[in-house]
Design a binder for these strands. Structure first.
Length: 264
DNA sequence: TATGATGATTTACG
DNA sequence: CGTAAATCATCATA
């Protein structure tokens, strides 16, 4: 019996494909959502946020996803507990019954054991069914989430502005450190993974043909130069006698233009 | 609707 | 691991 393997293309940080049905417990209990930006947020908070429908994006958001997952998990646990309890109750009930009967009819311990075994097996099969349907629900939810995520949305103008600014002002070494990535992610309100993706794409596409990006490069070089100039001006105002370290924004084609176009 | 831009994913490499 | 490169899928625009 092969369990049907859904081939969901595009799970960026998903756990390895493991169609073992038995691992469902792990999935429900631990479920490293493993999405980008695993910003520490309590499930309760996420649920509350999702419940109030605060998510700005129209697609299924992380918080939404997590909230629904939590809900499923909760239901699963409640049901499981209910079955557990029912099983115990039923078992004791049967035991009592048998004990009562043992007064009139001799009942071997073997018989009792067998009965208990049957009951437990019955209940565990029911629990398996519960597990399976829960698994199904999670799968559906997950695939929906992935579908939503696959819908590409361009970054905001401001975000690309910030990213480009960093890229062109570090053109000689456009490899932001982890901290820099986090900073950029924060500023652009995107995830660190997205920042990494962006720089990966930008590097390769810039290198592919520099000509196409010259205009953009000059534009951002000018912009950062202006910023630097302003900063320098402020610095000069603050301390009149400073060491004349050249604030050259190193790198290759990083001509320092003044705001009016003249070379500094 | 054809086409380029762009974000995301996959594959391969050190 | 992070990255380069190729590729995919969607967006944006003419």
């Amino acid at each position: 019996m092969k369990s049907t393997r859904l081939s969901i293309r595009g799970a960026q940080e998903e756990d390895p494909p493991d169609p073992q049905l038995m691992r469902l417990d792990n999935m429900l209990l631990a479920e490293g959502v493993a999405g980008p930006e695993k910003g520490g947020g309590s499930a309760a908070a996420a649920a509350a946020a999702a419940a109030s429908g605060g998510a700005a994006d129209n697609s299924i958001e992380h918080s939404d996803y997590r909230a629904k997952l939590t809900q499923i998990r909760q239901i699963y646990h409640t049901e499981l507990e209910k079955y557990e309890q029912a099983c115990n109750e039923f078992t004791t009930h049967v035991m009592n019954l048998l004990r009562e009967q043992s007064r009139t009819r001799p009942i071997s311990p073997k018989e009792i054991e067998r009965m208990v075994g049957i009951i437990h097996r019955k209940f565990s099969s029911i629990q398996m069914q519960l597990k399976q349907s829960t698994c199904e629900a999670v799968m559906i939810l997950r695939s929906r989430f992935l579908d939503a995520r696959r819908k590409r949305r361009n970054f905001s103008k401001q975000a690309t502005e910030i990213l480009n600014e960093y890229f062109y002002s570090h053109l000689s070494n456009p490899y932001p450190s982890e901290e820099a990535k986090e900073e950029l992610a924060k500023k652009c309100s995107i995830t660190v993974s997205q920042v990494s993706n962006w720089f990966g794409n930008k590097r390769i596409r810039y290198k592919k043909n520099i000509g196409k990006f010259q205009e953009e490069a000059n534009l951002y070089a000018a912009k950062t130069a202006v910023n630097a100039a302003h900063a320098a001006a402020a610095a000069v105002q603050n301390s009149q006698a400073n060491s004349p370290t050249t604030p050259n924004s190193g790198g290759y084609p990083a001509p320092c233009y003044q705001s009016d176009g003249r070379i500094q």
